[in-house]
Structure formats: structure tokens, C-alpha cells
């Protein structure tokens, strides 16, 4: 069970027909490192990078024209902005009241969302950033240093071992490893099968379960994937609601409501509070905000 036709048929059954997918490059301004967002936009414009505000993001801009690579400007090297796909900027923005909180970023590398967290926290509180792959930690550290992040400690650690830290967190970001989607990867259809999607979904459930155990009462978890496959998205949320005593909070952001019926199977009605983003200007994404009951 694999191949382009197989997956496209699945998406049709879920109510989506692949339309034109034209991904646009986006940046996010790191407010902590700039005096004025508009001034940064002007500085980039003077270098030949034209920006257009993204309507559904507070700090996000589309790159509408670029005479040079946005990853090779003085402003980029000074940490004034990060190159971050538009949909990927949404999850972190959904946390409430981040200032002074103890936050876990459980699958952090290469660090785009870690930097966004620190920016929203104004470098207050603490971020514990984990990643299992040693080879990715250097890129994460480079990103933190470039963006002048001061409140983060990084460990090489499997997110499923988070309990070993002995910390209870106020907020947890689970940007879990996933199967990805075809919009961001030209070879996606050739290399993915339902079998490995189910394997990934299993790992994601393990990560979710361990995170829920390390979350304070009334704490928040943002669960995000860039997968379009319901096994990794709505079905995992449904499982978490039924097994981990987590509640799905309603979120207001770009995207469609989560699906509550998947291939004939009815899911918990609160799953519709999630957001599913089909590829278009952005890549595909899925976002859920959980709260742990008191």
C-alpha cells in the first residue's frame, strides 16, 4: 500500500483534491533582536529582498522577490529573522502566556521552533530542548547562537526518556518526527508506504504518552506534524484523548477543522478542534493543542 495513486486516493476520501501546490518561502522576524519589525523589513528591502506580510501570522512574511539568498544577509547572520516555512510558524504561536514558563521542546533540531519559543518568551523562563540525533545538535546550537537565544539548555536525548530529567513542564512542544508530505519532498510518494506511516504513528504515541506524564496539571501541549496522514494526526489525537486524559482545546488559526470521521471510523468529537492544513501556499501541516486536566 504505497505509491502516488494510493495516497492521492486516500486524500480524496478525506475530502481533499490536490490542487496547485505553489510553496512560497517565508521568514519570521525575531522580535527580541530587532528594535522595530518595519525597520528590518526596510533593511531587507534595501538589499533587494521584498517582503509581504502573511495575513495569518504575527511575525511572518512571504518573500515575494529576492535578488540574493535570504540565508546570506547580514541581518540573517545577526539573528534578526529566521527562514521558517509559514505553516511551521503556527504551532508555537498557539501557546498561551509563555513568559517565565518552563518549556520542553522535545524534538528540537534544527531549532526553528525553539528560537520562536525563546522569542515569544523574550528569553525569560527556561526551554529544555531535546533531540535524539547527535549530528543535528551542532545545527541546533548554531541556530541558537546566531539568534542570540539565552534561555535554552540542549540535551541529546530521546523524547521518550524525558522523565529521566525529573522536571514537570508548564508547556510542551511536540513537533514530532513524522512521515512528512509530498509538497515539501519531490520523492515523497516513492519512498513512503502505509507500513512506515503506521510505524511513525506508534513512535508518536509513545512520545505523546511520555510528554503527558511530564506535563504539569493545567499545562499545555502543542502536538504538530507535517504529515497529511490521519494515522499520525487525528487518529493519534483521538487515542491521546481516550488514553492520556488530555483535552483538545479549540484553536483559532489558519487551516481547516480536524477530521472526526476517518475512512468510516468515528473519532472523539473534540478532534475537530485541531487544525489540518492541506498543501497550497504552505506545506501540509497538522496542529493540536492539548490541556492536561486539573
Amino acid at each position: 500500500m504505497s505509491g502516488k495513486e494510493f495516497f492521492l486516493r486516500r486524500y480524496e476520501k478525506l475530502g481533499w483534491k490536490p490542487s496547485d501546490v505553489k510553496l512560497k518561502q517565508a521568514i519570521r522576524i525575531n522580535s527580541t533582536n530587532v528594535v522595530d519589525d518595519e525597520e528590518t523589513v526596510k533593511r531587507l528591502q534595501s538589499r533587494g529582498i521584498k517582503l509581504e506580510k502573511i495575513s495569518f501570522l504575527e511575525k511572518g512574511y512571504w518573500i515575494s522577490q529576492a535578488k540574493l539568498s535570504p540565508g546570506a544577509t547580514t541581518e540573517y547572520l545577526l539573528g534578526m529573522y529566521s527562514i521558517q516555512e509559514a505553516a511551521a510558524q503556527i504551532p508555537v504561536s498557539l501557546f498561551t502566556n509563555l513568559k517565565d514558563k518552563i518549556v520542553l521542546d522535545s524534538c528540537a533540531a534544527p531549532g526553528g521552533k525553539t528560537v520562536q519559543l525563546a522569542d515569544l518568551m523574550h528569553n525569560s523562563g527556561v526551554i529544555v530542548a531535546l533531540d535524539i540525533e547527535r549530528s543535528k545538535l551542532a545545527a541546533l546550537a548554531n541556530h541558537l547562537e546566531r539568534c542570540r537565544i539565552r534561555n535554552t539548555v540542549v540535551y541529546q536525548m530521546d523524547a521518550r526518556r524525558v522523565a529521566e530529567l525529573g522536571v514537570k513542564f508548564d508547556r510542551i512542544l511536540l513537533d514530532v518526527p513524522c512521515s512528512g508530505n509530498f509538497a515539501a519532498d519531490n520523492n515523497w510518494f516513492a519512498k513512503r508506504s502505509l507500513k512506515d506511516i503506521k510505524a511513525n504513528a506508534g513512535i508518536q504515541r509513545e512520545i505523546l504518552a511520555k510528554a503527558a506524564g511530564s506535563l504539569k496539571n493545567d499545562g499545555e501541549i502543542i502536538y504538530a506534524t507535517c504529515s497529511l496522514e490521519p494515522e499520525e494526526d487525528e487518529m493519534n489525537v483521538d487515542w491521546a484523548v481516550r488514553n492520556l486524559h488530555l483535552q483538545v482545546e479549540d484553536i483559532e488559526c489558519y487551516g481547516e477543522k480536524g477530521l472526526t470521521e476517518i475512512f468510516g471510523k468515528k473519532l472523539h468529537r473534540s478532534v475537530e478542534n485541531c487544525r489540518r492544513i492541506w498543501p497550497g501556499q504552505t506545506q501540509g501541516f497538522f496542529i493540536c493543542k492539548f490541556r492536561k486536566g486539573g
Partner: peptide, 12 residues
């Protein structure tokens, strides 16, 4: 939070 086995912490 900066225990013995951290990789990166605070300001480098």
C-alpha cells in the same frame, strides 16, 4: 537545568 551531560546552555 544545566546538568553534567548538557550539550548547550544559555549564552555560549
Amino acid at each position: 537545568f544545566a546538568l553534567d551531560n548538557f550539550y548547550f546552555a544559555g549564552i555560549y
